[in-house]
């Protein structure tokens, strides 16, 4: 299935908060939906799930209007919430029944997911008696209980220790490999890089970047090189490059261990390597620069953008 969000606009009380959001995602792939706090990610997800009706634009599934009720959707909201004073399995079964499962099927699936997430012994305990991490796992179990085709995870790793994070990572990878369509929203860029082949960055209600993460990285790294030296620390190395090699490269960023350089002429990489041999710079490492997702996010959604 291919899910397309096209030019979604949404206003509240006359104020437009989404100004034409567009992105697409396919089954068996995960999309990283990124943005700063208040950028419009949750509103976009709610429009997608028909909680809010858009003022403009459309959502399509395989080219036809997307009707959430016709699909199995698992949603893990950023604002975690279940019934603290109800038994874990009872409330999971209730929510699963609302999403179309039968009572017996819902309870069996609930038990399976609790076991899968290693919290099977808490099925008959009240939610409020569980630790925060285990409550988080219950929330994930209720997201997946109805074996959804579309999984929307909003900050799924917050509050999990490294062991539980690993369990969750395995589950998410498993779901992607099973052909589920995953929309993954998080501020923890490392996790997004691990799972997502595509990203969409929202800033102030606009999509500022979207597409294949690999292509974005390649594009943003084009004409850029990294350079570190054994005999110069990064600051002094930057001065040296600006003085002696400015006709070939420009220092774009000074990182702690290395410099990011932007080529100023054709075939800058080859020419730089040749020129370096004529200086006293003892090269430790050099190569093509590929930005991290964090760098991309800061560049696109930071205050300077």
């Amino acid at each position: 299935m291919k899910l397309e969000v096209r030019k979604i606009r949404k206003s509240f009380g006359g104020k437009e908060v989404l100004h034409g959001i567009s992105f697409e995602v396919e089954s068996g792939r995960a999309l990283g939906l990124l943005g700063r706090n208040g950028a419009g990610k949750t509103t976009t997800i709610r429009v997608l799930m028909d909680v809010f009706r858009p003022n403009g634009g459309e959502v399509l599934a395989d080219g036809k209007p997307f009707v959430p009720k016709e699909h199995k959707i698992g949603y893990l909201p950023e604002e975690r919430g279940l019934y603290p004073q109800k038994k874990v399995l009872d409330q999971m079964a209730y929510l699963a029944r609302l999403r179309g499962m039968g009572t017996k099927e819902a309870r069996e699936s609930g038990k399976w997911w609790l076991e899968r997430l290693e919290i099977g012994e808490y099925a008959d305990r009240k939610l409020e008696t569980l630790s925060k991490g285990n409550q988080q796992k219950v929330q994930l179990a209720q997201t997946l209980i109805c074996n959804p085709d579309i999984i929307i995870l909003d900050e799924p790793f917050s509050g999990l220790d490294p062991v539980n994070s690993q369990i969750l990572k395995d589950v998410v990878r498993e779901q992607i490999s099973m052909g589920r369509l995953v929309i993954f929203s998080s501020h923890q860029m490392g996790y997004v890089e691990e799972f997502c082949e595509d990203i969409a960055i929202i800033n102030h209600g606009d999509i500022v970047l979207s597409g294949s993460l690999r292509e974005i990285k390649h594009e943003m790294g084009m004409d850029r090189l990294t350079l570190s030296a054994v005999n110069y620390e990064a600051g002094r190395l930057a001065e040296k490059v600006e003085t002696e090699l400015s006709h070939l490269v420009r220092v774009e960023q000074v990182k702690k261990e290395y410099l990011i350089l932007k080529g100023q002429c054709e075939d800058a990489k080859r020419k730089l390597l040749a020129a370096l041999s004529g200086t006293d710079i003892d090269v430790a490492q050099t190569g093509m620069y590929e930005p991290s997702l964090n760098d991309i996010f800061v560049a696109k959604a930071g205050d300077g953008e």
Partner: peptide, 15 residues
Amino acid sequence: QEKSNRAMEVLVTST
């Protein structure tokens, strides 16, 4: 209560 404990977040997307 459902708003306060955020159960509503899941409920409104389930029904």
